[in-house]
């Protein structure tokens, strides 16, 4: 690691005041620290958000659930009152990563193979920052890119409770990130199908959403042919294989919901 300064502000305002082009936010550090260790980044300072109490916690609020940006995956797995969210969080990384990694850190990083983006988009969550709220569909923009502006700090993510939902993930056998992960949800805003791992960034499979809106059955997905165009291809999985997994996992998610 290169040298850097380390700051641990106590409030969001204080944190915002410390941010500039050469600083980075440190949440759980489960991606940032390995990156720094490999000398792939050289920030002047890290601004650690862990002392800001208001960024932590899982707060049920009527038919929604607000999760503080600094809430760890383990806390979400244990406390989230939306079962699919708890189960998704319990499958991120490993126990030690879940004890440190946070939802805010994960979605801000927007790793194409991360799990949380599928939850945020699939459940139609809203991302709140110190400046504004951002709809799930607008948040994830491209490979490791989000709608966040320079120096903008995620404060929480609010998930509307779905009527029913399931997330099925096919692990990369080595890294245990998602080769493909599919979230299927019946939400107040309709059926949503969000896919992570397969493309440069999480995306909605609208053809499936339409089909499932007509008939929420696995048969409804049977005739959909998922195109491999634009999907990721690497030594672990070709685009064609990922396309297959999207359909297989979506069907399994539907089957799980239908019991």
């Amino acid at each position: 690691m290169y040298e850097f300064d380390y700051k641990r502000p106590g409030t969001i305002d204080e944190a915002a005041g410390l941010l500039n082009d050469d600083t980075v936010l440190l949440a759980g550090g489960q991606t940032l620290i390995p990156t720094l260790k490999q000398r792939l980044a050289q920030p002047e300072a890290l601004v650690d958000l862990s002392a800001i109490e208001s960024l932590r916690g899982v707060c049920p609020d009527g038919d929604q659930l607000a999760i503080g940006a600094m809430t760890t995956h383990a806390e979400v797995a244990n406390k989230a009152t939306i079962p699919v969210l708890a189960s998704l969080a319990s499958g991120i990384g490993d126990a030690q990563v879940r004890n440190r990694g946070t939802i805010g850190g994960s979605i801000a990083n927007n790793d194409p193979a991360a799990d949380y983006p599928a939850a945020v988009v699939g459940l139609n969550a809203v991302v709140s920052t110190d400046r504004r709220t951002i709809a799930a569909d607008d948040f994830f923009t491209d490979l490791f890119e989000t709608a966040l502006e320079e120096g903008e700090i995620i404060t929480n993510v609010t998930f509307p409770k779905p009527e029913a939902a399931a997330y099925i993930k096919f692990d990369n056998p080595a890294s245990r990130y998602a080769i493909v992960g599919v979230m299927v949800a019946k939400t107040s805003s309709g059926i949503r199908v969000a896919v992570t791992g397969a493309g440069p960034c999480v995306f909605r499979q609208t053809e499936m959403e339409t089909a499932l809106s007509g008939s929420f059955t696995t048969q409804a997905l049977e005739n959909i042919s998922v195109s491999a165009d634009g999907l990721n291809s690497d030594i672990h999985a070709s685009a064609e294989y990922r396309a297959n997994l999207i359909k297989v996992l979506a069907k399994r998610a539907v089957a799980q919901i239908n019991g």
Partner: peptide, 23 residues
Amino acid sequence: DTSQCGACVVHVNGNSAKSCTML
């Protein structure tokens, strides 16, 4: 060096954590 092997696991406030992935 990629936070996967777990040889460095310690408990931090009662929770297991990879001490190679913490400052």
